[in-house]
Amino acid sequence: MFEAKLTESTTIKRVLDAIKDLIQQANFDCSADGLSLQAMDTPHVCLTTMTLRSQAFEVYRCDRPLSMGINLSSISKILKCAASKDSVKIVADDEGADCAEFIFENESADRIAHFELKLMDIDSEHLSIPEDSDYQAIISMPSAEYRRIFSDLSIIGDTITIEINKNTACFSVEGDIGNGSLNLAQTDSADEKNPVTINVKEPVKMTFPGKYLNTFTKAVPISEFVTLCLTDGNPLAIEFSLPDEAGFVRYFLAPKIDQ
């Protein structure tokens, strides 16, 4: 038996919004620790991973690990039927269920909606993602700042370079209409309202597709802050963490290389 109840639908709605433009379908792996997912986009340029830990849920029960193959567009359609304050309960049989049940209940518990989502058999390879590898540079900034930088720059062009030196990050773009750049310095005091922190072991300069960096802004409502981790020649890791260590959405984006 798998049963998981979120107090408010907002959490899962936001998480799905952050991933559904990158992934069409994926296996939601349920275990005693929580709900997780990993999938590459079709061109194999971006890997998206998501975890909702068991503590994110008001009720969480997973007797045996199970994998639910879900079409992201279908689950989003069903979750549109939940008001943001409604609770969401997901129930599935752990013995080869062919559908998952979604129950939405309003705050006064006098309106209860039931939906059944058909599950799919999805062949997916599980990838081993290096945990906390030794990054050359890590920058943390308010997620609203992230949105502003990459929505602005991706309008100019798709080739965005991130260069991080001691205490300064430079984001630049080259496009058909011209080019642009933006420098962001580490904020001075720790009690600054919107801190930017930059940790550099070695200066790094890498180029990425702006289209993807802009797509990741869909995760901004999840988290107040975002962390970007860079190592030359490796994928860029971008993490949006849910409050209270309830989980995260992480993207790994392949760099562009000069040939």
Partner: peptide, 14 residues
Amino acid sequence: TPVQNDLDEFFAVC
């Protein structure tokens, strides 16, 4: 023009 890398080479299949 920079060419996009493929992620397959970065992550091993378990």
